[in-house]
Design a protein around this nucleic acid. Sequence first.
DNA 1: TATGAATGAGTTTTCATTCAT
DNA 2: AATGAATGAAAACTCATTCAT
Lengths: 236, 236, 236, 236
Amino acid sequence: MTKRTKRSPRSSSVTTTRAATARVPKVASAPLRPKPAANRAEKSAERRAAIVEAAMEEFIARGFAATRLDDVAKRAGVAKGTIYLHFTDKESMFEELIRTAIVPLIGNITMAPPGGSVRETIERFAATFIQEVVSTRRGDIIRLIVAEGPRFPAIADFYFREVVSRGLAGITALIQLGVASGEIRQKELARFPQLLVAPAIVAVIWQSLFARHAPLDAIEMFKVHLDLIFGERRTT
Amino acid sequence: MTKRTKRSPRSSSVTTTRAATARVPKVASAPLRPKPAANRAEKSAERRAAIVEAAMEEFIARGFAATRLDDVAKRAGVAKGTIYLHFTDKESMFEELIRTAIVPLIGNITMAPPGGSVRETIERFAATFIQEVVSTRRGDIIRLIVAEGPRFPAIADFYFREVVSRGLAGITALIQLGVASGEIRQKELARFPQLLVAPAIVAVIWQSLFARHAPLDAIEMFKVHLDLIFGERRTT
Amino acid sequence: MTKRTKRSPRSSSVTTTRAATARVPKVASAPLRPKPAANRAEKSAERRAAIVEAAMEEFIARGFAATRLDDVAKRAGVAKGTIYLHFTDKESMFEELIRTAIVPLIGNITMAPPGGSVRETIERFAATFIQEVVSTRRGDIIRLIVAEGPRFPAIADFYFREVVSRGLAGITALIQLGVASGEIRQKELARFPQLLVAPAIVAVIWQSLFARHAPLDAIEMFKVHLDLIFGERRTT
Amino acid sequence: MTKRTKRSPRSSSVTTTRAATARVPKVASAPLRPKPAANRAEKSAERRAAIVEAAMEEFIARGFAATRLDDVAKRAGVAKGTIYLHFTDKESMFEELIRTAIVPLIGNITMAPPGGSVRETIERFAATFIQEVVSTRRGDIIRLIVAEGPRFPAIADFYFREVVSRGLAGITALIQLGVASGEIRQKELARFPQLLVAPAIVAVIWQSLFARHAPLDAIEMFKVHLDLIFGERRTT
DNA sequence: TATGAATGAGTTTTCATTCAT
DNA sequence: AATGAATGAAAACTCATTCAT
């Protein structure tokens, strides 16, 4: 993107739609049919999923510019040309990948069931987030966005719009709930919902950069963080 | 190799004038001219500085892999080959840049004068950090480290050793001081000094990714953060 | 990397015709067409052969260091990148070329049919060698080995192992045969089989360096040489 | 040479002259004056000799194209620019070097004192040649000429004119002398004086390519060779 | 004269993209 | 639809040559 002079029409909306419909849950799909008897569409979808999976791994491991489509194809078990049957080019592939990657995240986030106290809700959400994101490959996606965001404004924009602003809105609501119920003393916290998630972000970064030097217990850290906000906790 | 065409005479249209202006004794010449006419060593140092500066800009803007040394040279106003007089190759240039970039950061961190309460000390340090790092180009260096760290383990290692572990050690000491003096109620905080700096990290990331969508008052956010740790502040 | 401008459509002006001509079952297609239309594997082999041929010419004409792969590609009628589909890099290409170049030589050498006297056998071999090597491009390969050997020890090693030591062993055997049969009086010759081939080597060198100043009748020279060894010959 | 488009006037005659007058016998010059008190001209001559010496080593080790003037300068202990005070460019430096390198060889060759039988004369000459050339760095110069000759026709021409044709003429005369005196039975040998020196050439090549695999006693080999020509020798 | 930093054309190598099969 | 050989623009790196000091 940075330097590309003329970009052929990429129709990001179309591409995104395609991604949404094509994306087949990798593990769940297998049992549906006996392996060999997959039809055209299914096979194509499988191939696409393999490419997406492989590309994700490579992009995470090397970043956008250093990733070779050759490697992606090899890892996905398809020919290089096949990638171009599913994606316009490397750049749009990357953008689409990042976009589709966060779909499940949003699902989990908004799915947070509302029962119990505000602290419990947040704790539950945090536990999920840490287990699903910080400790997994998805954390690397966040790092990837941090890494490539400046060069892919479209991604930063999309991410801000679809994830960050929504997520922070939800957190703000929770904080206000907590303030109203007296669980949270610091009213000002609602002005900076980022403060609530900051330890999670730091945990994500820590895992990919420094985990091997000094492992970090993200859950425990987050609990201490919540103690700062809600006051000393009683149990573990 | 054998193919090179003869080099055409460079800019100096009148070669004969050389004899007139040149021939100044090396060492004695320095005092003769005031500022603009630097000697060889100085000029070389200037060039190197220009390369470092230009490379920093390019690396920050594009990341390691997507940065072209051609562009670095152009931006620095030197020839491509000149870069190789100062750095072995692109990779070691990058590593050296990252390393030298944090030297001033360390300076500022360790320079923190010890007067006043723990909160005041931290507040002072945070203000400096935010002004000097979050709001400047140096914040991008942190983002760059986050972005390229996994591909440059040497950098992550160096950074952990020289900056992170030292910084966290200092912060831990401060926290323990605060706990001892009663300023900080949460003893557990000392186990996770990352919590103290998390908002600063988040601010850095926010600035480079989302600032244009929603500006963030990092200083104010940090104050609210400190209120969580030290209890409600009195003044603004 | 990110900078690439979109590739303009290559030579094939009418892309639509592709659908008509394509879609032929891979394996079955071969017999359909006679000679000019080679299949993929054949075409690749042809290309490789063209590269080998072109590279040989260039290496012989310029030596290793001064040869440009650009020229090799141009001469072979392929794109620069195509070379790298067949060879790892310039150096290994050179080494492989030299290695494969001598295979036919070895074939000819060992193929020497055993009939007649020792002198006749040697004469026959020498005639073959001179016709096939000294007077052809292959002689230049020998000169190339002499030229580049010191910088490519692997080549010198290989050549010594596969060609020189074997060839000299064979010659030694022949000499001993001749000594035993009384054809050769000088028993000591078996200690220096190099003496037998020395004129051929000198002829090779002479051809590439001095032929245009003074042509050399290698065959006649070799006959005189054999007269020294076997005694005066009867006919011319 | 091969590709160079425009060559600035190199005035090879002038250059050669310069070389002839500038060339100071390296070892003999030192005792003439106490080391530190060398004057301008002497210093310059010393520098030039150092460059010639260093260049020779490098050219022999790497060939023309692969030799870097940087390395030559370093080895000679001068600055890179200094080379250009003595030589027009790399190419003319190479040509001049090759030319001046054989001057002492010619000296030794023509200096051969005429006493004794033809065999003795040749034996004496061969011994000198093997000791002075085959076993020394000068043999590599011959190999260098073989290696680079085709790319430097001027060198091949010069060498043929100044060394080869003269040398062969001398050898032819010797052979005719031997034939006349009855020492040599093979009259035809005079038609191919190359046969006489072939073993020496082969020895030179063998030394640089295969000596480490199988050492070759060049003197002994040459004696056997002479036995072929003159008949069995009596003593060693 | 000597120096060596600077230059930039030239060379090797890579890799996104195309297209005949 | 899938393949993967072929392409060639672009990028890293080299090094002969220049020239200010």
